[in-house]
Computed example of a mutant assay.
Amino acid sequence: MPKLGMEPVRKRQLIDAAIETLCRYGWHETTVVRIGQQAGLSPGIIHHYFAGKDDLLAAAMRRILVEFRHEVTGRLAVASGPRDRLQAVIEGCFAPSQFRPEICAAWLAFWAQAPFAPELDRLRRIYINRLRSTVLAELRRLLPEEQALLAVLSLASLIDGLFLRAASGDTRVTPEIARGLATGHLDQLLTGRARVH
């Protein structure tokens, strides 16, 4: 039986190990045994804290989403004006803590598994809705409604696509390149050069 007070420590160890294992092996080759080996713990301890691999991925994504929210809201707090606030979202998305291989790999597994796991799907909807509402609120201050609605879809798709591209092993997609591409796309949307209709 685990020692009293060890639960948060063990859970963090296992979540870290799951993220590392996903990055190394991918979803299908990530097993409870491999996660246990990565954490230096027996597979039995994993089942003490988590129902299985899906449950562990959900816990990992909850933590990633909290950290992502902190990156974005911290930048939004010091941004002034809608254009700066949109840039703050982009900077938060591609912050070094977020845009690294193991986190990108977790996002790839998350997107692939969300349609088949209710808790992952719930987290996916929360992420999509929060990003959309944050970005759309600022775009509505800069663009007509119809353009703003299409622009938020375009920008969110680019952000997610850059994460998935990085997760697939494209080493050209660095945080700096990703920020630059997203910023350039935003500028095109705001000046009407990007086709969104």
Rank of each mutant, 00 (worst) to 15 (best):
L41G: 02
P43F: 00
G44V: 00
G44D: 00
G44Q: 00
G44E: 01
I46Y: 00
H47A: 06
H48G: 04
H48C: 03
A51M: 12
G52M: 09
G52A: 08
K53F: 01
D55P: 15
D55F: 09
L56V: 14
L57H: 05
L57K: 04
A59Q: 10
A59R: 11
A59V: 02
A60E: 04
M61Y: 10
R62Y: 00
R62W: 02
R63Q: 14
I64A: 10
L65E: 01
L65D: 01
L65N: 07
V66K: 13
E67H: 15
F68M: 12
F68H: 13
R69T: 11
H70W: 09
V72F: 07
V72Q: 13
T73R: 12
T73D: 15
R75S: 11
A77V: 15
V78R: 13
G81I: 08
P82A: 14
D84N: 08
Q87K: 08
A88I: 05
I90L: 06
G92R: 10
F94R: 04
F94K: 03
A95F: 14
A95S: 14
P96N: 13
S97G: 15
R100Y: 14
P101W: 01
E102I: 01
C104F: 00
C104G: 08
A105E: 04
A106Y: 08
W107L: 06
W107E: 06
W107T: 02
A109M: 05
F110T: 01
Q113A: 06
Q113G: 00
A114F: 03
F116N: 07
F116Q: 07
A117W: 04
E119L: 03
L120M: 01
L120R: 02
L123D: 07
L123G: 07
L123K: 01
L123W: 03
R124K: 10
I126E: 15
Y127F: 13
N129C: 02
N129E: 14
R132C: 10
R132G: 04
S133N: 09
V135I: 14
V135G: 00
L136A: 14
A137L: 07
R141N: 08
E145I: 11
E146H: 15
E146A: 15
L150M: 12
V152E: 13
L153M: 07
L153K: 14
L153A: 08
L153Q: 10
L153I: 13
A156D: 13
A156H: 08
A156R: 05
S157T: 15
L158P: 13
R165M: 09
R165S: 06
A167G: 10
A167F: 12
S168G: 13
G169K: 11
G169Y: 07
